[in-house]
Design a protein around this nucleic acid. Structure first.
Lengths: 211, 211
DNA sequence: GTCTATATCTCGATAGAC
DNA sequence: GTCTATCGAGATATAGAC
């Protein structure tokens, strides 16, 4: 009898397509939503469970501890952003284009994923968490540093410390994001701002023309 | 008898000058130290008390709740920074000098007060706290916005949104700080970097020469 | 795998002597 | 004002049925 009910429930979900039984992902998603609103210390696991429509204990089946959940969420977001960026950057483009796209789409992604962005900031400034190996979300070596390295080697950039470039570029993205997140401009104007701030950034490091 | 012991203890403190009975301040200081290491959620009030060498209950005599303590600490730091900046900026200077000093000493202060800086970042990204009226530490209207406003009105700056200037300038400071905090350069080199990054910032917004 | 029920513990806050 | 002792809420994590 109970078995029948289970089957029925399952079929209902399949038919309505509304709620695939991907519990681990559901946990991550509701956790993110709640963390963005209350912070991870202000969010009890019991609330994540009830909000996600699952039993409290189930969380600990997928994530041994709350910390593990938080870290898993961070990794999840990180790989999301990574995929998004690699999807939007053409390897065949010139270095300026690639840098522009990296900048542009990093800001764009943050604007379209504000909870995710906010969460990563919280995460970054949470000393007691075991952020072992959790370098800055955007210090994704392979994407950023490779690019800066190339720009330095080809003398596209003035000879400055790569860490300085990295820090300043990162800040410029965050600054642009902060402005746009509050300003609420129409999409087109938003794009203009991102491009303009990128131009400023570029001109900071570009090697001046040799006549 | 006990009264005598008390008096004796008090006199000892006065003589050694080692530990003025300024408990509220001592609480703030050790709280800051611990918050920087464990975060404020990872730091129980009991630990603050024991580390500060006072009784647990005493904390709640000065600060009704833990949240109140956190907020008091934030205000304390904010006014410290404010005093530091106003002490270092000459009102009689030209606008470029004043902006430079604001930038320079903001970074400098952060480098000399890393725990304080780190704490304010934690604070900024703590959604559940009653940060009512806790605007960004550096969005201290009277210091920053007044300056930007003046630069815009005197056409020293290109006509850009003041919020954009504010966001970008702030980010540039944070970016410069992040770089220097990791790089560990000698003091002289540090100054050079701050000045150089300020020049970049300035040239972003400066009105080009009209011939 | 998922649920309910519960064990265990830590922390913030209070009470009351001194 | 400062201390000690303690209370009670609420949190994570586990046990065990289904």
């Amino acid at each position: 009898m109970i078995r029948l009910i289970r089957k029925f429930t399952y079929l209902c979900r399949v038919i309505t397509q509304s709620d695939l039984p991907d519990k681990p992902l559901a946990i991550l998603n509701t956790a993110l939503k709640l963390f963005a609103e209350y912070g991870f210390h202000g969010t009890p696991t019991s609330k994540i469970a009830s909000e996600a429509g699952i039993a409290h204990g189930t969380i600990f089946h997928y994530y041994k501890t709350k910390d593990a959940l938080v870290n898993a969420l961070y990794e999840h977001i990180k790989s999301d952003l990574r995929r998004y960026l690699t999807d939007h950057i053409k390897e065949s483009d010139g270095i300026r284009e690639r840098f522009r796209d990296l900048f542009y789409y990093s800001v764009q992604w943050s604007l379209e994923h504000r909870d995710e962005f906010y969460f990563t900031q919280q995460f970054k400034y949470s000393p007691h968490l075991k952020n072992s190996g959790a370098e800055d979300l955007a210090q994704q070596h392979s994407l950023h540093r490779k690019l800066y390295k190339e720009a330095l080697q080809t003398k596209t950039f003035k000879p400055v410390s790569i860490d300085l470039i990295s820090s300043i570029a990162m800040s410029q993205m965050v600054g642009t994001y902060n402005y746009l997140a509050d300003a609420n401009l129409p999409a087109k104007k938003q794009s203009t701002v991102i491009n303009d701030t990128f131009d400023m950034l570029w001109s900071m490091f570009e090697t001046p023309d040799q006549p």
